[in-house]
């Protein structure tokens, strides 16, 4: 222990301890600062990305169901509004029914029934999607409607934050998702999801076109005959069941045509196509 007995030895030992402590502290600072760069642990971000993918799966199922329900809801509204776009046809105010024929104008001739159906479909889909609890699903869709298929492609993606944990995800919520959609994303990144859908549902929109063709004949017939006689040849044929009500001393006839081919498995109510014709007779 002569090292600690003479002055030089003591001096050396003291310096040695000081230097070693400085080195240890320095090493800690260096290593800690390097670790501090990764504010998440190994694999955390990958797991978060997987979680975002899972969130996407949930949204896709919700969108698919919403789109399916929207078709049936839209069909009902569309039929009750005379398969017309709002404010495109004049309205018979007593029964709030659009005129298909008024002042010698056949409004239904220029109508695009697929386009008008699309309007009601989009409206309904929006209502369903805005109720999604975790994210703000304000999605504009490009819709393609045929008699047996409906396709929807979103015009812009849904941006899901790649959140670090369910707690943080809950904290971000609707407001931040909306913010990120508009201004981009901060933090760990985003998962861009395009929730498109394809529905194999028979809308039978062409059946409404069939009704329109028969209305041509009915309008001509009503000039000289009673309404009941005019619809008699079509009654209960091609799955169409014609009912009517007359108003204004029979100047206006409101038709309620039931289309048997259009079925709604979620509602017992039959499909009604309601429109008014001015009696030119």
């Amino acid at each position: 222990m002569r090292l600690f007995k003479n002055k030089k030895g003591l001096d050396y030992s003291a310096w040695m301890i000081i230097v070693v402590f400085i080195v240890i502290i320095y090493l800690f600072v260096v290593i800690y600062s390097k670790l501090d760069v990764f504010d998440v642990s190994i694999g955390d971000q990958e797991a978060c990305l997987m979680n975002s993918y899972y969130e996407g799966d949930k949204i896709l199922l919700f969108v698919d169901q919403s789109a399916k329900f929207s078709v049936y809801r839209a069909l009902g509204e569309w039929g009750k509004n005379g398969a017309s776009l709002p404010d495109k046809f004049p309205f018979f105010k007593l029964s709030n029914t659009p005129y298909w024929f008024k002042d010698n104008i056949k409004y239904y001739k220029d109508a695009n029934f697929y386009e008008s159906f699309e309007f009601y479909f989009k409206n309904n889909l929006k209502k369903y999607l805005e109720k999604y609890p975790d994210y703000f699903l304000d999605i504009d869709y490009e819709i393609a409607v045929t008699d047996d298929k409906i396709l929807g492609v979103p015009l812009k993606p849904v941006l899901l934050p790649v959140v670090l944990s369910p707690e943080k995800k809950e904290k971000y919520g609707e407001l931040i998702s909306e913010f990120m959609e508009k201004f981009g994303v901060f933090g760990t990144g985003i998962y861009a999801l395009r929730p498109s859908f394809s529905l194999d549902i028979n809308t039978h929109i062409s059946d409404v076109e069939l009704v329109a063709k028969k209305v041509d004949i009915v309008i001509e017939c009503m000039k000289s005959s009673d309404v009941s006689e005019c619809i008699e040849p079509f009654q209960s044929k091609d799955g169409l069941f014609w009912n009517y009500f007359t108003y204004d001393n029979e100047n206006t006839v409101v038709f309620d045509v039931i289309l048997e081919n259009i079925n709604n498995p979620y509602d017992e109510e039959m499909f009604h196509l309601i429109f008014a014709l001015e009696n030119a007779g």
Binding site: F62, F69, Y132, Y266
Partner: peptide
């Protein structure tokens, strides 16, 4: 754990 709509538009957990 996920959400689904019903026909009436109510969201079910």
């Amino acid at each position: 754990e996920f959400y689904l709509p019903d026909y009436n538009g109510d969201v079910k957990k």
